[in-house]
């Protein structure tokens, strides 16, 4: 493993759910509007974040969602410390595929990998097809943290990555008798709910 506080984070999920947009919002605080630029293979970006006064380096793998890249991305699951699993709240199929993604994670990733389920594009209220409660229920079933995000407005984007950084860091520095950091609880406290959705 790499020295210092450096962690590998991987973004996964169906094609066109907004993985790259989410990452660009987090890294550069901009939104990639206009035409859809699909990722080819895996893109790599670094971002150093500050958690309680210490620097944590996130090495972020942004994967292509298309089926033909699955066999390639599998190989990188085992090195990932955290996985951001995305679906698109306006695309029912992308939500239905989440179970298949979780099965893949189960098969290929490390046992202690941090998983966060994200329902992206929550700003598109009129086209929404997946209710927030559905996402919450699924996350509960699999015991993962969950929130809805919007790469367009920036809702919960920073929080998603920061929660992961916090969790990874606390795992490393935690003394045996300290309480375990619970990313799901932390996220529940901190996350903002989109004001206009039902």
């Amino acid at each position: 493993m790499r020295s210092g506080d450096s962690y590998q984070v991987m973004l996964i999920g169906d094609s066109a759910v907004g993985k790259t947009c989410l990452l660009v919002r987090f890294k550069d605080n901009t939104f990639l509007s206009g035409s859809f630029i699909s990722t080819v293979g895996i893109d790599f970006r670094n971002k150093v974040v500050n958690v309680d006064g210490t620097k944590v380096k996130l090495q972020i793998w942004d994967t292509a969602g298309q089926e033909r890249f699955r066999s390639v991305t599998h190989a990188y699951y085992r090195d990932a410390n955290a996985l951001l699993l995305l679906y698109d709240v306006t695309n029912k199929a992308s939500f239905d595929n989440i179970r298949a993604w979780l099965a893949e994670i189960n098969e290929y990733a490390q046992d202690d990998v941090v998983i966060m389920l994200l329902g992206n594009k929550s700003d598109m209220t009129s086209e929404r097809l997946v209710r927030r409660e559905d996402g919450e229920r699924l996350a509960k079933e699999y015991g993962t943290a969950f929130m809805e995000t919007s790469a367009k407005t920036g809702l919960n984007v920073e929080l998603a990555f920061m929660a992961i950084a916090r969790d990874l860091k606390s795992r490393k520095s935690r003394r045996p008798n300290e309480p375990k950091f619970n990313v799901a609880e932390y996220v529940d406290q901190e996350k903002q709910k989109p004001s206009c959705c039902s």
Binding site: T39, V40, D62
Partner: peptide
């Protein structure tokens, strides 16, 4: 591959 892909412009890529 290079001229058809915009995504390589934004980040380092690793592609089969």
């Amino acid at each position: 591959l290079v001229s058809a892909s915009e995504s390589f412009k934004a980040a380092e890529s690793w592609t089969p």
